[in-house]
């Protein structure tokens, strides 16, 4: 597999970040960065990463299935992650999540038919003092109300 020149440069820098003989350290960042470009951890990507790092694919599978941000199925272009953990729950994060389900018409780890949106009820994302919080891909949104959530989703829809 080949990646974009930007990603290749990033991966090269990554591989040089670890001492000699410790290439395996690059595994998780490499999966994260390539997933961002490929869309999900496909079997081909697993093979490619295993080849680049020089480990059996089973060791890649072990890691892919362990970390919650690595997905083997593609998520939507805009991956909406709603935190319902305790600090967000206290600010009705659970209702916000229910609202998001209705708004997008999908459930946990599901993708809209057009592939634009996916939804995930996530664990604490480190925005507890500004609850309830959501992340769309890597972007944080704080103090999210139902109205604000609608606005965010509607503005993303307009981006098409």
């Amino acid at each position: 597999m080949t990646f974009s020149p930007e990603l290749e440069a990033k991966l090269e820098k990554l591989m040089n970040s670890y001492p000699p003989g410790r290439k395996k350290s690059a595994l998780i960042p490499m999966l994260m960065f390539t997933q961002d470009e490929v869309g999900s951890i496909t079997p081909e990507l697993v093979e490619e990463v295993a080849r680049r790092i020089g480990i059996p694919t089973v060791q890649v599978d072990e890691v892919v299935t362990y970390y919650s941000m690595l997905h083997r199925k593609p998520m939507g272009k805009h991956h909406v992650q709603v935190c319902t953990n305790i600090s967000c729950l206290l600010w009705d994060g659970d209702e916000l999540y229910e609202h998001a389900c209705k708004k997008l018409g999908i459930g946990h780890k599901e993708v809209t038919a057009d592939g634009e949106f996916s939804l995930e009820e996530v664990e604490c994302m480190g925005a507890c003092s500004w609850a309830p919080a959501i992340q769309v891909n890597y972007d944080f949104h704080h103090h999210v109300t139902k109205e604000k959530l609608d606005e965010i989703i509607d503005s993303l829809k307009k981006l098409r």
Partner: peptide, 27 residues
């Protein structure tokens, strides 16, 4: 000094699990 990204695992906040993860293994 280098940055290294995790991939979603609370357990990696535990120091030895973090080191495992930093070595490219399950946390």
């Amino acid at each position: 000094l280098y940055t290294h990204t995790g991939a979603g695992a609370y357990e990696c906040g535990e120091e030895s699990a973090l080191l495992e993860s930093l070595e490219g293994k399950r946390g």
